[in-house]
Design a protein around this nucleic acid. Structure first.
Length: 553
RNA sequence: GGGCUUGUGGCUUAGCCUGGACAUAGCGCCGGGCUUCUAACCCGGAUGUCGGGGGUUCAAAUCCCCCCAAGCCCGCCA
């Protein structure tokens, strides 16, 4: 209802003033929506804004829709207040399952996220990528888009070569831990060995050349090492409620000839240079450094495979979205520029800033990181303690299930609530906090709503909305589709996190001041309808955030 | 050295793109609330030169310029 009403008021203002861009802002405490258009008109008409507002207000009255909204003039401001009809229609919409969906879209989206190098477990930095990506994918799906979630597997890079080398030459104890942690152990040890004796680096180079030439046995060994690690990574992602529809293997683009084809196309570009290496001069596009695609030994670099990957995506999907760390900003911009020059579809890239530890930045190679598995285990343990304290009567199994949901909620929310452009420092105390502004806090509001509904049993919907707490709640509920649309249009998942938290806040205040089960008649039915609408909206929002909407906790 | 991003009460953070009416909330601090729909909750209070300086504007946390600080990038790594 919010989007529709907002658009309608915008149209009216545009008709009335002739201003194309009819400024409409959030009214804050003054109104539901407000317009400052009188100020800009004052400039052209050379009249005081208060006078203009007064006149506009008088003419606006004719457009006031019965109960939908009314206009109030406050000095130079035009304030719009939503009426009873607005509240009723908003509630009706919010009772529908799938509330929030925008009309079904035929656009196919390839959304790539996580794509961490398979040389160790995911750490708390990687999962910022995973959680941003998965939340966006969920938001797109909810909005009615067709999304394919992709994990790009870097299976032929130097880091994997180091793992393969370590597996065969170091003679370390075989796997006894989770797959990805096992590979990390090998990788870390191999790096130490290489540091001690740098001469062995030639062996790594040789492995890379052999795998790129397509030597069967070498390809098999690389794949095997990567597969082992990927098994572990998939397990972690599963714990986080994250699933990929397709794993795209980097080496496939070499095998199927795509990389060779793109190299040929690059060579024909006027910006291409071929000396000992093949590189593109992007200085016209504002990049100073060389965009190197092929080494002097004839092997290609990551960038070449990435071009092939994106060309493939561009031909199979209408929209390409990549989630990448801020360290990929330059190479991402160069990729986009090159794709444009080639006449191929560039991706939209959502970059997020780094997560570091209090003692400094994380490094898989140095073994300096907090793994996602460790985080999940710690948070789950704390959650189980909390559940046990609050619900001792539940079975072990029931408490464990709740604890698992609560833990994932805490982790996912903690990460998604911060805007991606902010760098963060991982903080155990914050990760283990289940209070306000946390995922569990929102789950709790949902569980409270469920509890009321369960105790109430059957009721017939009613729409008598009275009192400030109830109206505020309905108005916020009515914004959900607007927020969801904003999330997908602007690729800003944290807006949804903020929205859900505000909704939980409003419901908790309502819960405190407005009795539901102890009320009677139409009032009771209306309040139950409001609880149901809140519960449904919370559920949709939580699901989009990848958080379980628990009925009890 | 150049580029990108960030800087909002003691700590964390929304708002910034698209300027507008007393800057959002949490943690922590002080005080209060469980015979009443789950207290993972609620209510009240204290705490802000919105990094600093200049500019544009009727109006700047928001736009522009300069400076300072932090993170990231500038590789025949990915």
């Amino acid at each position: 209802m919010y989007r529709e009403t907002r658009d309608e008021i915008k149209d009216i203002l545009r008709d009335l003033t002739g201003q194309e861009d009819a400024e409409l802002v959030d009214g804050g405490t003054h109104a539901d929506l407000a317009s400052t258009i009188a100020f800009s008109l004052a400039r052209v008409q050379r009249r005081p804004p208060v006078e203009i507002a007064r006149e506009l207000g008088a003419r606006l009255r004719e457009y006031e829709k019965a109960g939908l909204f009314r206009v109030e003039i406050k000095g130079p401001y035009l304030n719009f207040h939503f009426g009873e009809e607005y509240l009723k229609k908003s509630l009706q919409a919010a009772l529908q399952s799938g509330y929030g969906a925008i009309a079904s879209q035929e656009v196919r989206i390839a959304l790539e996220h996580t794509s961490a190098n398979p040389n160790g477990p995911l750490h708390v930095g990687h999962i910022r990528n995973s959680i941003l990506g998965d939340t966006l994918a969920r938001a797109f799906k909810k909005g009615g888009y067709r999304v394919e979630r992709q994990y790009y597997v870097n299976d032929i890079g130097r880091q994997i070569a180091i793992v393969v080398w370590g597996l065969t030459t170091l003679g370390l104890p075989t796997q006894q831990e989770k797959e990805d942690h096992y590979i990390a152990r090998i990788y870390i040890a191999a790096n130490r060995a290489l540091e001690k004796d740098p001469g062995q680096v030639v062996e790594i180079d040789e492995l890379m050349q052999r795998v790129e030439r397509g030597e069967k046995e070498m390809v098999r060994r690389f794949r095997e090492a990567v597969s082992i690690c990927l098994e572990g990574i998939k397990g972690t992602l599963r714990d986080l409620r994250i699933h990929h529809d397709r794993y795209v293997w980097e080496s496939d683009f070499i095998r199927n000839g795509d990389v060779e084809r793109v190299i040929e196309r690059i060579r024909k570009m006027p910006q291409a240079h071929e000396d000992e290496t093949l590189w593109v001069d992007l200085s016209e596009e504002g990049f100073e450094n060389r965009y190197i695609l092929r080494r002097s030994d004839g092997t290609t670099v990551y960038a070449a495979r990435d071009l092939a990957f994106h060309i493939w995506k561009g031909r199979n999907f209408e929209v390409l979205i990549d989630i990448l760390g801020a360290d990929h900003k330059l190479i991402g911009a160069q990729l986009i520029a090159t794709l444009r020059l080639l006449g191929e579809k560039p991706p939209t890239i959502l970059h997020f800033e780094f997560v570091s530890l209090p003692e400094g930045s994380m490094s898989t190679r140095a073994g300096k990181f907090v793994s996602a598995d460790e985080l999940i285990a710690e948070v789950t343990e704390k959650a189980l303690e909390e559940v046990t304290k609050r619900r001792p009567e539940l079975s072990d199994r029931a408490r464990e299930e709740i604890a698992s949901s609560v833990a994932i909620a805490a982790i996912r929310y903690d990460i998604v609530k911060v805007s991606p452009e902010k760098s963060t420092v991982f903080d155990w105390r914050e990760a283990l906090d289940f209070e306000r502004q946390s995922g569990p806090y929102i789950q709790y509001a949902h569980a409270r709503a469920c509890s009321i509904l369960e105790k109430a049993g059957e009721f017939s919907p009613a729409y008598q909305i009275e009192g400030p707490h109830e109206a505020a709640l309905v108005k916020h509920i009515s914004r959900f589709p607007f927020v969801l649309d904003q999330v997908v249009q602007e690729l800003r998942p944290h807006l949804l996190a903020v929205y859900a938290r505000d909704l939980a806040d409003l419901f908790n205040t309502f819960y405190r001041y407005v009795p539901v089960l102890r009320s009677e008649g139409e009032v009771r039915n209306s309040r139950l309808t409001l609880v149901k609408a809140t519960q449904n909206t919370l559920k949709e929002a939580l699901e989009t955030l990848g958080i379980d909407a628990l009925a009890t906790m």
